[in-house]
Design a protein around this nucleic acid. Structure first.
Length: 337
DNA sequence: ATGATACCTCC
DNA sequence: GAGGTATCA
């Protein structure tokens, strides 16, 4: 599997070089009860995090307003989350993980609203919904339709390597920023398809052109200030964006905490707990809304977070964690198992 | 409005 | 067949 993509070997993050970068400092970010880094970055809301050889989790993120890329590395030790980053980037990192949300209070409210969520909350304390950069979130989720996790990660990684701005570390280790809509818009469909994203290549180019026509990244970011319904409606006009992906983008980067992305897992959960007998046979526009409304009625305006606990606990049960985790290890992206 | 099918790719 | 969408009946 290594011989298939030898180029990746040279791209492994050399943690020593990062430690030698004087701008990178280790900070005590918060407690592990406040943030479970590992499950938060592998629970299906973001796809570019990886575990370096020293087991620190790392990602090359983009600040949503300034479009400035920056490196983050996180690790947990003695009940604390340690953060290795440029101190100037700490506010961005706190914002990304939405540490302003009082998770203890929120999960307490969820438990009061519905005891069915107790096992999920108990299994993953510290699991959070992110505030990602909308550009990365939208174009990432365009790659997710009917695709397994390793394919999603490979496609997104390829997209960044092909079109993302390259930033070299102190000893030349490369980091690729997520590409701009403009860059994706000017790329041939065939070149995008060569990344292994299949028919989603057409969606990437079409949506990139539509976003650029609307004003680019700032237009997407402005949806954060719009009501959920308006933001979702705007996203639904984009090619390749249906209800599920629109809700993923709303929830995972636009602060729309009531958004419920409904897939087969969430549908099964809704059937099991709330809709016995009255369960819809298929996922139509109406049944999609019914399931979302059911969960919103139960958990209120932060229902999207409740959905994430229920969803992840359900999928986690079905896959052995070791097999799951292996896809993230050592930064080797793109190869399954 | 609901239901069926094709669309890339690869295990 | 897979964590979905566009298209057409």
């Amino acid at each position: 599997m290594v011989s298939k993509e030898p180029a990746l070997l040279s791209d492994l993050t050399n943690t020593r070089t990062i430690r030698q970068n004087p701008a990178m400092q280790v900070t005590d970010l918060c407690s592990v009860e406040e943030l479970d880094v590992e499950h938060t970055v592998v629970c299906g809301q973001t796809f570019r995090w990886r575990q370096d050889v020293d087991r620190w989790w790392s990602c090359f993120l983009t600040e949503s307003v300034t479009r400035r890329p920056f490196l983050v590395r996180l690790h947990f030790e003695n009940g604390r989350v340690l953060c290795q980053a440029d101190p100037n980037d700490l506010p961005c990192i706190r914002s990304y993980f939405r540490l302003e949300v009082d998770l203890a209070q929120l999960t307490e409210e969820f438990l009061g609203a519905d005891p069915n969520i107790a096992p999920a909350v108990a299994a993953f304390p510290g699991l959070r919904v992110l505030r990602q950069d909308p550009v990365e979130c939208l174009f990432s989720f365009l790659c997710t339709s009917a695709a397994p996790l390793h394919r999603i990660r490979k496609g997104i990684d390829g997209l960044c390597r092909l079109l993302g701005e390259r930033h070299d570390g102190p000893l030349g280790e490369p980091h690729f920023a997520f590409p701009t809509p403009e860059r994706i818009a000017e790329t041939e469909i065939a070149d995008l398809q060569a990344l292994g994203v299949g028919y989603r290549a057409r969606y990437l180019q079409a949506t990139a052109r539509q976003v650029v026509a609307h004003g680019g990244a700032p237009w997407l970011l402005a949806l954060r200030d719009a009501p959920y319904e308006d933001a979702k409606a705007a996203l639904l006009t984009l090619t390749g964006v249906g209800e599920k992906i629109a809700d993923c983008v709303c929830l995972f980067c636009l602060d729309k905490d009531a958004a419920i992305p409904v897939d087969t897992h969430v549908r099964q959960i809704a059937e099991r707990y709330y809709l016995q007998g009255a369960a819809p046979k298929s996922l139509t526009k109406n049944s999609y809304a019914l399931i979302g409304d059911t969960i919103r009625n139960r958990f209120g305006p932060m229902a999207g977070w409740a959905q994430q606990y229920l969803f992840y606990a359900d999928t986690f049960e079905k896959k052995a964690w070791s097999a799951y985790e292996a896809q993230y290890r050592c930064g080797v992206v793109g190869e399954p198992k």
